[in-house]
Design a protein around this nucleic acid. Structure first.
Lengths: 238, 238
DNA sequence: ACCTGAACACCGTTCAAGT
DNA sequence: ACCTGAACACCGTTCAAGT
């Protein structure tokens, strides 16, 4: 008995030791809060409490709450399944599978998909996703310059789809918005909005099929429309 | 002299009379604050102050801040120029002109475009925009069911474009995000991200031309890809 | 360089009470 | 039904001071 070392908890009080702060530690804590309580709770103050410090201590490692949210989102993209990139089979189907995985990850929390719509990601996970999508397009024989431009279009489309899927699951506040749009379209005055009246139900139809159609539209258009002649002086970002 | 009625300001104090609250009045005040100080300042408390009352008085006319923001955004869409809908000329160019007008309205404030990305609109101005886009697609001979699905795609694309254009003007916080992405792409490791390395500069090139290319992709795809067979039992929303 | 406490300048919304 | 004041439960960030 006397051989057992004294419990560390004695020298370190009851708490399991206060680890040194670090950017990684902050992001890891943010991920834990994200999964346990949602993005809404990922705040500077909340994280500081979790890390047993004051909010201002975090500013040594993170510029502001937006950068933290971006870091969390990038980290979350680790869950996107990129194995289809190196698999075999029709590249269009593999690309769609990758996008569906991305959509699933974001749709887990409606607010997450909305964040993805609004932040400009640039972390390693996002780069890996871009690289994967790019790889599939190039494997499909899409001209490089066109593939580069198409990635944005495809990922933006997928992100939007994630917000729709997300709000279908969680009957959150946005579910009410959606219901209001449905009602507005259903009851839209045929004199004032003749074209809406003409296609009323089509505007509200689809979903899975509609998403796939959207994807096919993007791919089909990408393959069909050449990029304009590039002026070498304008190839860089403004 | 004695015939002139006593100035109202006497009986009503110095202030120019406190008008009765109404939903329209609240939205009008919100629009004024929006234009004068930006969407960030369109808060319940700020509007209440402007209307010389307490924040809670507004809740009689507006469900919550999100509904108010949606109302403001819809109102703002009154500025979108829909005259090309009834004009003559190539329908594709007219549609692009309408979308550019929509983009301009949203790009005036980056935060506005971001809001548009996230809220589901259903007000009269938004319906008018949808009706106009729909009208042009139908005029172009696009099959009605396909036109209905294409509207969402086109408007989402335009909204995304507005956020990009918006952040190009205002060097706000998102401008920094953009700069970080540019750096990340420029310095992306060629071993880890081979496809990014292969098309590096193309990923960052374009802008005006890129937007127009995206639009052409959407139209071309819409014309090329038929919607799937509709099961009549599934044509309604869920 | 890193960490902190207190303070500033706000938020949206609930509640209970008034008219 | 409409309006209100006070309170609740938070925010992000600046500042000045500590180690």
């Amino acid at each position: 008995m006397l051989m057992t070392p004294p419990p560390e908890s004695v020298s370190r009080r009851e708490r399991p030791a206060k680890p040194a702060l670090s950017r990684d530690g902050i992001v890891a804590t943010a991920m834990a809060v994200l999964r346990a309580e949602g993005l809404e709770r990922v705040t500077m103050r909340r994280l500081a409490k979790e890390l047993d410090t004051g909010p201002m201590s975090l500013y040594v490692y993170v510029r502001d709450i937006q950068e933290l949210h971006a870091a969390v989102l990038d980290e979350l993209l680790a869950e996107v399944d990129l194995t289809p990139v190196a698999a075999s089979g029709d590249w269009r189907d593999r690309l769609w599978t990758v996008l569906l995985s991305y959509i699933d990850v974001l749709a887990a929390q409606p607010i997450l998909a909305k964040l993805a719509l609004v932040v400009r990601l640039s972390g390693p996970r996002y780069l890996a996703l871009v690289d994967g999508v790019l790889g599939l397009l190039l494997a499909g024989g899409v001209e490089p310059a066109r593939a580069a431009w198409a990635v944005d279009l495809l990922l933006q489309f997928a992100t939007t789809t994630a917000t729709e899927q997300g709000t279908r699951w969680a009957e959150s506040r946005t579910g009410a918005d959606q219901e209001e749009l449905v009602q507005a379209v259903r009851t839209a005055d045929a004199t004032r909005y003749p074209h809406i009246a003409a296609v009323r139900e089509s505007l509200l139809s689809g979903h899975g099929a509609r998403w796939r159609w959207g994807y096919d539209v993007l791919l089909s258009g990408t393959v069909a429309v050449p990029v304009p002649e590039q002026n070498p002086l304008e190839t860089t970002n403004e």
